[in-house]
Simulated assay, not measured.
Amino acid sequence: MPQSLSHDDAGEPQFSLAFDPAYGQAITLALGVLRVTANNPSPLTFLGTNSYVVGDERRCLVIDPGPADIAHRDALLRAVAGRTVEAVLLTHSHADHAALAPAFSAAVSAPLLGAPRVSALGEKRLGGATLDASSADGLVFAHDLRDGEQLSLAGAEMTVIATPGHASDHLAFALEGTGIVFSGDHVMAWSTPVVAPPDGVMQDYMASLRKLLQRSDSRYLPGHGGVVERPVPFVRALIRHRVMREGAIVERLEAGDRTIPAIVAAIYPDLDPRLVPAAGLSVLAHLIDLQSQGRVRTHSNGMGDTLYLLVVV
């Protein structure tokens, strides 16, 4: 969930809100790596969606073209600067990252590469329905990317890292030899991502975080906000944060809370009202995970409400 400020008194991640989006400009982050931020700020996108251009003076690739915004398209084309675009890569299909992708890849005559959504939508829902994150329409990939796949593009070697959780099709991309990982929405400096059922799955998200701990990368370039400079301890803190959040939910069930709104009100007391639905989705994702562990069961009160009951084991 997005946070307004951060601390580490109890092992919490040190979130950073320091970020200059420099809309319309290409910002150099490393040799051959440019960031262009779309002007689509919101409570869930922070100050906008980051697109990345990676390559040398003759060729490049683009990661996450972003929302369907003409000004952002033009800024990306300026960043490409007439180079051959060898591929357009997507970290995931949410519209703020991918809506521009079909038109942009056609405009630069580049293949669009990403992963299909793989979760069985609906099967992972618990009780009442809830909205899924909006995804871009018309995504047809020239090639479906696989976990561990090696890509040789634009003079660079890129490794595909499947990181489902925030979305079933979420990928990260490691730029080999640099210590850089393009982490999409999986790990961001400004906030934890929303895990929104049915396509977002908490168990997958946690497994993907632990998967990144097996690597020794030095910088994450995320889909929103600034650079994650010390990713390994930051990811460890994200895991602790989610474990603590799960514990808080269990405590609320023990205290007698039976509905998601009641749990959200108790554990997010000062939350921006615009973020209450997203908080409810993250609580739901935790409850689904707890149910899969046999620690929670559901019950209907006959009026269309789903009640959540803690199982004593």
Rank of each mutant, 00 (worst) to 15 (best):
M1I: 07
M1A: 10
L5S: 15
S6C: 09
S6F: 06
D8S: 14
G11N: 09
E12T: 11
P13I: 04
P13Q: 03
S16D: 13
A18E: 15
T28D: 12
L29P: 04
L31P: 12
G32Q: 09
S42A: 14
T45L: 09
L47E: 15
S51H: 06
D56P: 03
C60Y: 04
I63W: 00
D64H: 04
D69Y: 07
A71H: 11
H72V: 04
L77F: 05
A79I: 03
A81Q: 05
G82F: 05
R83E: 02
V85Y: 06
A87V: 00
V88T: 06
L90G: 01
A101I: 02
A101G: 11
A101N: 07
F104Y: 10
S105D: 08
S109A: 14
A115I: 00
R117F: 00
A120L: 15
E123Y: 12
A129D: 15
A129S: 14
A129N: 13
D132Y: 02
A133D: 08
A142L: 01
H143M: 04
H143N: 06
L145E: 12
R146Y: 09
R146D: 13
R146I: 09
A154P: 02
V160H: 02
A162K: 01
P164Y: 07
G165Y: 02
H166S: 05
D169M: 00
A172R: 02
F182Y: 11
D185H: 00
H186I: 11
A189H: 08
W190D: 14
P193T: 07
V194F: 01
V194G: 00
P198H: 10
Q203H: 13
D204Y: 04
L209T: 04
R215S: 14
R215M: 14
G225N: 08
G225P: 02
G226E: 07
V227P: 06
V228W: 06
P231Y: 09
P233A: 08
M244T: 15
R245M: 15
E246W: 07
V250D: 10
E254W: 08
G256I: 01
G256N: 03
D257A: 14
R258D: 14
T259V: 06
Y268I: 00
L271A: 05
D272N: 09
P273V: 01
P273N: 02
V276P: 01
A278M: 09
G280C: 10
G280N: 08
G280P: 01
S282T: 15
H286R: 02
G294W: 04
T306N: 13
L307W: 03
